[in-house]
């Protein structure tokens, strides 16, 4: 089974985000970049599906600046067979149409059975790229899978919705986005890191254009939150809290 894992390079979840002078991108100085957490799950699932099938390859693809090579190397170290960097500037970051377009143009040319993505990237948090990608490729889309099994070209996924779990069935090839709970990603080991050096990492110019109908006007830091009120310690403060929530706030 040939599986493609789409991984995005994003600011570390603990990094402070400061808008750059243009007011539209982030100031990258001092910011550590990592693979988006849901995409780590997508990559892990890709490796497991390939190994389960007992044949095929895993290709990791990332759209972004040349530094995406770092997360692609990590993917190779974890067990991906090959990697593709679709080179693009910062403007892709908050434009899912552009990212999905670039991914679709590349993936269209591959013989793939399954494309795995994260549920959403932790920078733009759009959760749109997978659906756009599936539509562009003309294949089924299963969102936010917490479980995935494949047998004879047919897949079964589960996803959490309000009130419970839905079971989805579809034919491959397909795009599946993954949610927390689907697996626990493995850690890299020295052997993997050494092996990664001999694996192919191809760099190409990204295709995919913005529609021009979604324009980022401003990126700003959220207003700081005012200091809260410490009601005190222990059970007495707890009782006061209940009264405040009822009488001052009408929340309970």
């Amino acid at each position: 089974m040939n599986v493609i894992a789409c991984i995005k390079r994003v600011p570390d979840s603990a990094a402070r985000i400061r808008p750059a002078a243009d007011g539209k991108s982030i100031n990258a100085a001092g910011v550590k970049f990592v693979t988006s957490p849901f995409d780590e799950l997508a990559l892990e699932e890709a490796l497991r599906q390939r190994d389960e099938a007992g044949e095929g390859t895993v290709t990791a693809i990332s759209v972004g600046p040349p530094e995406c090579a770092d997360i692609l190397r990590s993917a190779l170290a974890l067990g991906a067979d090959e990697a593709v960097l679709l080179s693009r500037g910062e403007e892709h970051r908050l434009d899912p149409v552009m990212a999905a377009g670039a991914l679709a143009e590349e993936i269209r040319e591959c013989a793939f059975d399954l494309v795995l993505t994260g549920k959403q990237a932790i920078d733009d948090e759009g959760g749109q790229a997978p659906a756009l990608l599936a539509e562009a490729l003309g294949v089924p889309f299963a969102p936010a899978a917490v479980a995935l099994t494949v047998e004879d070209g047919r897949a079964v996924a589960r996803r959490e919705v309000e009130g419970g779990l839905e079971i989805l069935e579809f034919d491959l090839p397909a795009v599946v986005s993954v949610d927390k709970g689907i697996n626990l990603p493995r850690y890299p080991n020295l052997k993997g890191i050494m092996a990664a050096k001999r694996k192919p990492l191809e760099v190409k110019e990204a295709a995919g254009r913005s529609t021009g109908r979604l324009e980022l006007v401003a990126l700003e830091e959220p207003p700081p939150k005012g200091a809260g009120r410490i009601l005190g310690e222990g059970p007495d403060a707890a009782r006061e809290l209940a009264h405040v929530l009822r009488e001052e706030e009408s929340l309970i």
């Binding site: 600011p11 979840s13 990094a15 402070r16 985000i17 808008p19 982030i26 908050l94 932790i122 920078d123 733009d124 948090e125 979604l214 324009e215 980022l216 006007v217 401003a218 990126l219 700003e220 830091e221 959220p222």
Partner: peptide, 12 residues
Amino acid sequence: PVFAGRATATVR
């Protein structure tokens, strides 16, 4: 909100 609430984006 974007970047997990660490920034807000105004989008047209």
